[in-house]
């Protein structure tokens, strides 16, 4: 469903991502791993429309979305969980989820809200609480639930494990697996290479803004280069 060809992204002329080719099939789980500054988050920003690409093309379900602004991509089923969670700290949990459905006018919003709350009962308990007062793990749950409220067919996750304790990370990854089981395709950017590759069916390894390795997640987990560089072995 997502086809990226020759994507180049730059900050004020400084290249961050070059000649990136990447595919995500419908319902697939794909991981992007790499060191700090490899261009992982930049890639997601480019895909979500938060940055304009310098070159290359992005196609979603066959439609060219390279030049589309972020909000039109949300309409077309692409939803980003931003880096560092990005919840609206001074809005309540319920108001945050409401913002996730900002572009929707269909009657299914209530049902999706119930689904989010049953997926994350903690959010239901705290629905009237301000998002800024939630714990890190709860904020990540909220950011994911908010992204789901736009009813995406492809969910982009930017470092969902950042700053979270291992047990909390495990719960977040379980939730991502559940979302994927519901038919939503997942593109996951992670520093936590092992967890990301274990969750995914395929993976890309970025180095210096380029794809250094790509392939089956199991093969990547087994490859000695990946084990040495990213799994600390």
């Amino acid at each position: 469903m997502l086809e990226v060809r020759g994507l180049a992204l730059a900050y004020d002329g400084i290249a961050a991502v070059r000649e990136l080719d990447l595919d995500v099939a419908a319902g697939e789980r794909v991981a992007v791993i790499g060191a700090n500054g490899a261009g992982k988050s930049t890639t997601l920003k480019g895909l979500a429309g938060l940055m304009h690409p310098r070159a290359g093309s992005i196609r979603l379900n066959g439609e060219d979305i390279t030049r589309q602004p972020a909000h039109e991509r949300v309409c077309r089923g692409l939803s980003l969980v931003p880096e560092g969670r990005g919840v609206f700290a001074r809005l309540t949990v319920a108001e945050n989820l409401d913002m996730g459905a900002y572009l929707r006018v269909d009657p299914g919003i209530e049902g999706d809200l119930d689904r989010c709350y049953s997926m994350f009962p903690r959010l239901h308990e705290r629905r009237r609480q301000l998002a800024g007062t939630l714990s890190g793990g709860e904020q990540q749950m909220l950011a994911i639930a908010r992204a789901l409220m736009s009813r995406p067919s492809l969910l982009l996750l930017d470092e969902p494990s950042m700053g979270l304790a291992p047990q909390v990370t495990t719960r977040i990854f379980e939730a991502i697996a559940d979302i994927s089981a519901g038919g939503v395709a997942i593109l996951l950017v992670e520093q936590n290479a092992r967890a990301a590759l274990e969750l995914s069916s395929r993976g890309y390894v970025l180095e210096g803004g380029r794809v250094a390795l790509a392939g089956d997640a199991r093969d990547l987990l087994a490859s000695s280069a990946v084990r040495r560089a990213y799994l600390g072995e």
Partner: peptide
């Protein structure tokens, strides 16, 4: 209004607001 909520979202976190589909 919807407009007001979008403004408040921009005030709180512009990137997240864009990710929610706010123009």
């Amino acid at each position: 209004s919807r407009i007001g909520r979008a403004w408040i979202a921009i005030r709180e976190d512009e990137v997240a607001a864009r990710a929610c589909g706010v123009n």
